[in-house]
């Protein structure tokens, strides 16, 4: 519990520091270009690095079967996200897809 608060406080402080950084510097210094280019890849890398283990390692155990319910529901969610660009629709169809597959292969 104490560690949870430590993590929240430190993460919050660091995040605030990042947001304040250049504002506090009065815009006198701009970040180097390679840094800007590298940061472009952080969102897709982090998101994917959380998604794939959650799909292929449910409860920490590997499941690479094509009938893995999380894999099937995940593919459905990717398709919906790609076609509709709607966050809410992706979440809803992804979850319903998971329930459907779980019910079918039970």
């Amino acid at each position: 519990m104490a560690e949870t608060w430590l993590i929240i406080l430190l993460s919050g402080l660091l995040t605030y520091g990042i947001r304040l950084s250049f504002i506090a510097l009065h815009g006198r210094w701009q970040p180097p270009l390679v840094f800007q280019r590298a940061l472009r890849y952080v969102p897709p890398a982090v998101l994917s690095a959380i998604i794939l283990p959650e799909i292929f390692l449910p409860a920490g155990l590997p499941d690479f079967s094509p009938l893995n319910p999380r894999l099937l529901a995940g593919i459905l969610a990717v398709l919906v996200a790609w076609r509709t660009r709607s966050t809410l629709l992706t979440i809803v169809t992804g979850m319903l897809g998971l329930y459907l597959v779980q019910w079918l292969i039970r």
């Binding site: 897709p44 959380i50 998604i51 996200a81 660009r85 966050t87 992706t90 992804g94 979850m95």
Partner: peptide, 22 residues
């Protein structure tokens, strides 16, 4: 299986970022 909402939420955030091959 509510933990799976994290996966579908992140998929919804991830897909629009995949604009080019890199």
């Amino acid at each position: 299986s509510l933990d799976f909402t994290l996966v579908v939420t992140f998929i919804a955030l991830l897909v629009p970022t995949l604009k080019d091959r890199p």
